[in-house]
Amino acid sequence: MTDAVDELLEQVREEVAVRAERLWEVARTLHADPEYAFDEHRAAALLGAELEREGFAVERGVAGLPTAFAARAGARSRPAVALLLEYDALPGLGHACGHNLIAAAGLGAALAARAVLDGDEGTVWAVGTPAEEGGGGKVTEVEAGLFDGIDAALMFHPGVHSWQWAPLTAQAQYRVGFHGRAAHPTGNPTEGIDALAALIQLFNTLAVVGRRLPEGSHVQGIITDGGRATNIVPEYAEGLFGLRAATTEALEDLAGELLTCAYGVARAMGTTAAVERATPRYEHFRDSAVLSGRFARHLERAGLTVTPPTPGVYLGSSDIGNVSGRVPAIHPFVAIMDPDGSDHTPEFAAAAVSARGREVLLAATEALACTAVEVLLRGDVRRKAWDDHAAGAG
């Protein structure tokens, strides 16, 4: 039996269809003009203008970030749903992660949802989230309280898999510096304390530790400062280490392992060590099964299918994890190329403006908008999502 909400969902599909060419043009425009972390001024301006044109009140520069924005439509503060828009690109590769499609889908979903609501049924937010690829705009927005009072945060991500939810790990980068003492390597070698040798020993120690780390945890490091000349014992050496783990708690354990190894090597080598976190911490993603299930059903009606992810396979990290720890959230993947491909490649960038990319954009927009309407109008869906979130699901 069709109820009033079901009728509105049919209207959502019509609203997306009306905007199809416009949304595709936005996606293509972003793709042709890639901007990078915290410098996405033209993208933010374009998206904000599209929202203002349809009656959204747009606040720019939210959370102290010049290229972030929060656009609101609705007379009541609660319930509230946020569509998340990512629009940063990858240096040298452009939109090789498909953020042009994420932005256009979030935009279209917000516009379509607002169009079918009377304004007194809650609030639709469109939140511009810069620097997902490096810098963690959502981390800053969460800390600024931007998602306080939001009942759900919704986005999709193009990929090489079509998965209902995202197995995204926690991650952070740490800078480790060793201080030794300079000397001539042949003139007075016993006076030198080789900081580079200590850093290399840390790499070796972490390689051994890596054999016993739990599934999903690993450390990848690079040398960022290895000395100044071959005829000087390096008095300072520095490495940058990327840590990933299946959960935020496991990431903290891994960071503890790094500190233990660094300080242990320093003592053994006669150096001193300094360890500091170099990037915002991305938390692991917590899926709202209630809402991702709704998205999957709506996506299927649009002609595409998503399945649970392959067990034991992880797809990197994202600052959506920090949002998902505060409010019910979804981050499904929808494939725009075959599973034997990869994102962060020129081929994926091409797929982000392909016919398949357009098909995925419109289907995901429709599914996001329908899910947003259900969050606002179906109290049972909203309550179940919050109950699961409080219970720690995901």
Rank of each mutant, 00 (worst) to 15 (best):
E121R: 15
R114W: 00
K138E: 11
G134Q: 06
D118R: 15
G108L: 09
I102L: 14
L111C: 14
T123F: 00
L93P: 06
I102F: 04
E132W: 07
W125I: 00
G136H: 06
T140C: 00
E141M: 15
E132Y: 06
G134F: 10
G108H: 07
G119N: 12
G134N: 14
A112T: 06
L117T: 01
H95E: 02
A131K: 12
T129Y: 06
A126K: 05
C97H: 11
E143H: 13
V127S: 02
G137H: 06
E121M: 01
V127W: 02
L93I: 09
A144V: 12
V127Y: 02
D120P: 02
K138Q: 07
A112L: 08
A109T: 08
A110R: 03
G128L: 04
G137W: 07
H99G: 06
E132K: 03
A113V: 10
E133W: 07
A112Y: 01
G122K: 06
A144S: 15
G106R: 09
T140Y: 13
P130N: 03
G136A: 13
E132V: 09
D120R: 15
G137D: 04
R114H: 14
G98T: 08
A112N: 06
V124F: 02
P130K: 08
G122V: 01
P130M: 01
A144N: 03
A96R: 09
L146A: 05
G145M: 13
A110W: 02
L117W: 00
G94E: 08
G108P: 08
V139F: 10
D120C: 05
A126Q: 07
G119Y: 07
V139P: 13
V142N: 10
L146T: 05
A126D: 05
G94L: 09
N100T: 11
N100V: 11
H95P: 04
L146S: 01
L93R: 04
P130Y: 01
G92L: 14
R114M: 00
A131H: 01
A105F: 02
A112M: 07
V124D: 07
A113Q: 07
V116H: 03
L117K: 02
V139A: 13
N100A: 12
A131T: 09
L111T: 12
G145A: 06
G145R: 11
G134D: 11
L107E: 00
L117P: 01
A96P: 04
G94I: 09
G108T: 03
L117A: 04
G92A: 14
